[in-house]
């Protein structure tokens, strides 16, 4: 059980690292553009999360209000959620089958 928990945590951390790996040094505008594209992809797969679009909007608002640090943090968060939802959609395309009782 401990080993499984460890594996899940490691996997989650790896996912988080993957999502952020491509965002270092990006401007808030670029982050938001990438997040919006990923969220649109998640939507087309049928896996959009409710929290992503509001996070993008909040980042845009913070940017417009001149709160650059807050805007960047929110944009990074939105990008992470958007990419994670795409990962979920691509992964679930196959793994749902394992839950069907026999």
């Amino acid at each position: 059980m401990k080993a499984i928990k460890g594996l899940v945590v490691t996997g989650a951390l790896a996912l988080a690292a993957m999502a952020h790996a491509g965002s270092h040094g990006m401007s808030v505008d670029a982050l938001l553009e990438k997040a919006a594209a990923a969220n649109a992809n998640a939507k087309s797969l049928g896996y959009e999360w409710t929290i992503t679009a509001p996070a993008i909007k909040n980042a845009q608002k913070a940017l417009a209000a001149g709160n650059a640090d807050e805007a960047k943090a929110l944009a990074e968060q939105a990008l992470f959620w958007a990419e994670a939802s795409v990962f979920q959609g691509e992964n679930e395309g196959q793994s749902w089958e394992m839950r069907v009782p026999r």
Binding site: Y47, W49, T50, I51, W81, A84, S85, Q88, E92, S95, W96, E97, R99, V100, P101
Partner: peptide, 17 residues
Amino acid sequence: YTKRGQLNFSCSDCHMY
């Protein structure tokens, strides 16, 4: 049977298993 959302739950996660 498909997991969705940030909580990563399927209908079957809650209402079957």
